[in-house]
Design a protein around this nucleic acid. Sequence first.
DNA 1: CTGAAAGCGCTAACAC
DNA 2: GTGTTAGCGCTTTCAG
Lengths: 342, 342
Amino acid sequence: MANVTLKRIAEQLGLSTATVSKALKNYSDISDETKRKVRALAEELNYKPNSFAQSLRNRESRIIGLITPEIVHHFFSNIIKGVIDAAEKSGYLVITLRSGESYETEKRQLRLLRDKNVDGILISLSDKTINYNHITELIKDGTPVVLYDKISKLINCPKVIINDRMAAYHATKHLIDSGCCAIAHIRGPLRPQTTIDRFMGYKKALADHGIEFCEDLVFETSHLSFEDGYEIAGEIIKCPIKIDGIFAFTDLLAAGALHKLKENQIAIPDEISIIGFSNWFLSSITSPALSTVDQPGYLMGQKAFELLLKDIENKKQGRPSTAEIIEIPTQIIPRDSTRPGR
Amino acid sequence: MANVTLKRIAEQLGLSTATVSKALKNYSDISDETKRKVRALAEELNYKPNSFAQSLRNRESRIIGLITPEIVHHFFSNIIKGVIDAAEKSGYLVITLRSGESYETEKRQLRLLRDKNVDGILISLSDKTINYNHITELIKDGTPVVLYDKISKLINCPKVIINDRMAAYHATKHLIDSGCCAIAHIRGPLRPQTTIDRFMGYKKALADHGIEFCEDLVFETSHLSFEDGYEIAGEIIKCPIKIDGIFAFTDLLAAGALHKLKENQIAIPDEISIIGFSNWFLSSITSPALSTVDQPGYLMGQKAFELLLKDIENKKQGRPSTAEIIEIPTQIIPRDSTRPGR
DNA sequence: CTGAAAGCGCTAACAC
DNA sequence: GTGTTAGCGCTTTCAG
């Protein structure tokens, strides 16, 4: 039962632990003969280095932390997958934590990760995060941190984002190009940057195409749920202005709206066109299938890890963080809820 | 920059590290006065114990490993969430790994986790796992392991499962009760126990209700994808026997089949009724909404962690593993793709 | 009540 | 080529 340690191997071979350690690490100053013997015995005894001892010595855990607002979520689960896959390839393991969009939870989890001495942290800010001291202090104390998706411009560190403004611009333009001229926007809550950016993109697209912006065509929701989309579509139907296009903040809202419109025998895309955002799986199987904006979560996760790895290396070398910002390109996925553009 | 250690606190206070350590741990043999002083300084210097040193001493990491076949997956992501939430409540962190249904990957990841000295491992077997030595050896070596969802009866350890056989029985019965008598089954690949169990449940339900089992009504698929469901529905339509009910192995298959049937103007549920399995989110938003079997992933994840925790405690106390098996109840969710039963 | 000392298992600088 | 030594930071006897 007693664990196999370097010491044990050393004793059995009449060597010192130092020699055994070096032999296993293939140091050049150990004779081939010794290396052979050491390796053979290590193999035989099924030796495994004790990771705690290694970490203690080397001051690195080869574990990183990942904080995500949600796990059961098409976009975020793709990010998680991207991070975990990329990390594993580079010899890192990932501790995942779910903030549930709570500021307090986010703070607590950051502490948990720091207490575990993870080598770095990836975090997407919760919608309720109003203050960034918990992050900036962490960075100041030397923990590499990379923000992904929901970021704050006030934090100086590497980031991976999509250009929400541009993506929303193109989504809106897609509706305009296909002939819509009274375009509603179902937006999210005021706080997160993504909501603001998508709203701005929407406005800009209207302006650039000579369509007057109208406050009454913007519907705000807080839950980003199917039900919310459904409800709001009810308002859209009743709206005195005859709306012929909808750009929804997210696919779930769009799907809910779609459902309501269908119930009301409104022809889609001919009477009203709809475009969502995120390219969730569900958008491909509604009928009609939802046009949307693809937001490549997996890629985003990979890139986020790569940035973090770079920063971890920088720290090791005593170099400063790069604070590099990677923008992941998005893409319009035209399906059957919008008409072909010209 | 130098990290705050016990030693540093001890020096500043003219105490020994032993005393400081005990004071912080509130040992009864330290004077209140000393405790007060130590705590105050620790607070002031923002002392954080070094987790590597602690782990090395205490031989525990308070980290567990979780291997899942997939991450972007309604059911499994719910399990992950359940595990992570439960673990966090008990002071454990979770390293998640994705086997991607590969036996080799699964083996490698088990090794990674063991090398990191995690306190225990939760694993759902990949569909391609044909040999269980990698698991049994781990258990023999003393690592607490709990299997969830995709298990093997040949491994003796705690498990959390759903009663697939029973669930499938009830799903099939639901179709029978609503008047179907030529019921097709879209099943998964041969290997995993879940496929076999659901198939058995289907057969048993037919038998118990005087419906003859017919080989030709069983369609096998390997991908469990929307497309596969779509393809197979094509075969179902062409089938010489007039099928009036479909029990699909999973919601995705059912949704694909639904789509094909609708394209062919087949009335659902009147001409053909469909029931899926898992209660994925998507099943609630198809039209008609899919009847299905709810498989509570979140609960499953929680229970899996609880069992693991018990086993970790058992190991600490030198007691043997319980090998307890928890069966999570499932529930039929009747929606609009089946008729109301009698 | 407090401290000295040993040691968890590993690594690296420096001798020999 | 190999060994000695000195820790990494913490916990826990066991003395005093």
